[in-house]
Amino acid sequence: MRTLTRLLDRRTALLGVATLSLALTMTACGKADTGTSSDGESGGSGDKPLSIVFLPKNLGNPYFDASDAGGKKAVEALGGTFSEVGPQTASPDAQVQYINTAAQQHASAIVLSANDPKAVGSALTQAKSSGTKIVTFDSDTEAQYRDLFVNQASPEGIAKAQVDGLAEQIGDSGEIAILSASANATNQNAWIDLMKKDLQADHPDIKLVDTVYGNDDDQTSFDKTAALLKNHPNLKGIISPTTVGIAAAARYLSTSKSKGKVALTGLGTPNQMRKFVEDGTVTEFYLWNPTDLGTLAAYAAAALANGEITGKEGDKFTAGDLGDYTVGADNTVLLGDPTGFNKDNIGDFDF
């Protein structure tokens, strides 16, 4: 069974690379596709058509489905060609082959949510040297490997929203645990470090007893939730700062004797969490709009590819209907603050 799984994963990866190669080759060779939008604006730098490749942590993830849909709409509005490729499993080096292929096909830009801050560094460096712009979003690499990072919200704001939200739900005391994505995920680790600081500074009666990793896999996250409840019988709350993790944890809690006794919060999308809010499994969870995040990343990538910005602090660009943005310190663009979703407002959102 393991051999068959490996063969299927390899076949999927090769098909993804082939799809990307075909899309980019058609863009490069298609004379009619000049990269000019309907309003006459250039879709790329000079005469080169705009081609932007979105590379999420893994395919089939509802969060990245939403963010990449926003990116696709933005790229097409700019008259460019959009491609989405990626691995089925979010492992540290699984994205390397897709980066290499995009660079070899001279993509204008790669928009990447990194599974590891260093593992893709060499591939990204080579891609940059070939003229491809690198934009990270959602999960960053080390700064030298990219031109710009589009951050969904400030790490401090994300961490504080989740910690304060759970503290309110459990009466600001008791044992809690964290169900994260992969152990090497840059954004997850940054948030967890800040959560620990928030707990120590503002919630001294809450004890973090365990941090486990579901690797952004539904079944693994489901099993990790079960193990947390078994290993910590006095657990009062779980924070899962990953869309796959919080949905899997909610699914487990919803049919367990811990429903209504163990609070759950974290980062999720309204559509995947709606039923768990409505049935009382989850009181409130948080997220920015991932569609807007993908939109912003696409416009940032296009601005870099078109030479409108270089990614330095103070650079300004317009992101369609999202409005104007300014590049901040460390070559970072900030989307905004996270939103809390609960019974009162979850019906207002569809993503």
Results as ranks from 00 to 15, higher is better:
Thr291Gln: 02
Asp315Cys: 07
Ala227Val: 10
Ser240Tyr: 03
Asp202Val: 12
Ser122Gln: 11
Ala90Tyr: 00
Asp9Ala: 15
Ala143Asn: 11
His106Gln: 09
Ile206Leu: 13
Gln105Ala: 14
Ala119Phe: 02
Gly260Met: 08
Ala18Trp: 03
Ala23Asn: 13
Phe341Leu: 08
Thr132Cys: 03
Gln152Pro: 12
Leu22Tyr: 06
Asn100Leu: 11
Phe351Ser: 09
Gln88Phe: 11
Met26Trp: 07
Asp138Lys: 01
Leu334Lys: 10
Thr132His: 11
Glu142Gly: 12
Pro155Arg: 08
Gln188Ala: 14
Asp9Phe: 00
Asp217Val: 05
Thr225Lys: 02
Thr3Leu: 08
Ala227Lys: 08
Leu264Thr: 09
Pro233Gly: 10
Ala190Tyr: 04
Gln169Thr: 15
Lys257Arg: 10
Tyr286Leu: 13
Ala77Cys: 00
Lys343Ile: 14
His203Cys: 09
Tyr98Met: 03
Thr332Asn: 10
Glu278Trp: 05
Val96Thr: 15
Ala329Met: 10
Leu166Asp: 00
Thr101Ile: 14
Lys128Tyr: 07
Asn271Trp: 02
Lys73Glu: 12
Leu22His: 10
Arg6Asp: 13
Ala109Leu: 02
Val333Trp: 00
Cys29Leu: 09
Ser37Arg: 14
Asn234Ser: 14
Val135Asp: 03
Cys29Thr: 15
Ala305Gln: 00
Gln104Met: 14
Ile99Glu: 03
Asp321Ile: 13
Ser91Asp: 06
Asp47Val: 11
Arg6Leu: 12
Gly307Thr: 01
Tyr252Thr: 05
Leu208Asp: 01
Asp164Met: 11
Asn58Val: 13
Pro155Ile: 12
Asp172Ile: 02
Lys207Ser: 15
Val150Ala: 00
Leu4Arg: 05
Gln162Tyr: 02
Thr332Lys: 07
Ile246His: 00
Gly44Ile: 06
Ala298Glu: 08
Val262Arg: 07
Phe149Glu: 01
Pro92Tyr: 03
Thr265Pro: 04
Met26Lys: 10
Gln162Cys: 12
Gly157Asp: 14
Leu14Val: 10
Ile246Lys: 03
Gly266Lys: 07
Asn100Glu: 15
Ser67Pro: 01
Tyr63Arg: 03
Val75Ala: 08
Glu284Ile: 13
Arg274Leu: 10
Ser122Tyr: 04
Trp288Gln: 02
Val53Phe: 01
Asn231Arg: 07
Gly131Asn: 07
Ala161His: 08
Leu229Met: 10
Ser180Tyr: 02
Lys118Trp: 02
Asp68Leu: 08
Ser258Met: 11
Val53Gln: 05
Thr34Tyr: 06
Gly157Arg: 05
Gly237Pro: 09
Asp344His: 04
Ser254Cys: 11
Asn187Lys: 01
Pro87Arg: 04
Asn342Trp: 07
